[in-house]
Amino acid sequence: MIAMHELTKKFSSGRGIFDLSLTVEEGEVFGFVGPNGAGKSTTIRHLMGFLRADSGWAEIDGVRCWEKSAQVQRRVGYLPGEMGFLEDMTGSQFLDLLAGMRKLRHLEQRTRLMERFELDPTTPIRKMSKGTKQKVGIVAAFMHSPPVLILDEPTSGLDPLMQQRFLELVEEEKQRGTTIFMSSHIFSEVERICDRVGILKDGRLVALQDINSLREMQRKVFRVTTADGLNGDELNIPGCRVVGTHGNEVDIEVRGNYNGFIGALSTRDIQALDMRPLDLEQIFMHFYPGKEAH
């Protein structure tokens, strides 16, 4: 449904995206992750037909994104990463404008979305908080039930409750067979929703993994506090590694082998067990330093 082939765009600063090739199948949810400045938004701007590639191409449903951008938009719902609105309008006027430009006749989905996100659309946009503006953006992206969704950092600005509602909405869309291309910083979000993940670093795709193998590779650091102290040798098993000790506290990095880890601890007198989640960049950049995608 979404395809890129050797997509390259170099800016005068030397940054950009380089030789990006990937495909997202129909009904697949693809997570696009990487540190700030890696080129995620640049890639999305190519998919939206805002930028023209120096070389290579991007297509949605077989239609070239730059050459036929208006045609592409018929099938796409887009949530920009950085919100910019026509501030003089109310939320309703803005959504009416977009519905009018889409020649959207049935507005039931829009009404449902506004209720779901508790959006009061009568407020002028310039008086809305960042989170409320994000809700307007979400309604604008989903209101025409598009078969393809392109979401750039979709949960930024939303409070935890609304983040949950948004993730539920995306899960429903996934069930409906919508193809979703989503950039994110939050691993739990990507893990929950995405089937496959592409990792971008310095404009290059350094890894392309399905979420299960990524989950297996994901390392988590547990801080174990024992009554009598732990010997590092006891945890010398595949998938576990002691990364630090502080008195009776031991930091153990676990990658996939949770059974082995629990088994090794089962004979000890455990006083406390904490998990320190690593953020997405740490996880990915640890695993793929300079490694090329394959």
């Binding site: 939206m48 037909g49 805002f50 951008s69 208006a70 045609q71 938009q73 018929r74 796409v76 887009y78 920009p80 950085e82 919100m83 910019g84 609105f85 026509l86 501030e87 803005f94 977009l98 430009m101 889409r102 604008a140």
Partner: peptide, 20 residues
């Protein structure tokens, strides 16, 4: 101003072409 404030993104994310 619409390009600067990025509001243009929403207008161009509809099936109305840039020329229109």
């Amino acid at each position: 101003r619409l390009v600067d404030s990025r509001a243009m993104a929403y207008l161009l994310a509809t099936p109305v072409s840039r020329v229109r």
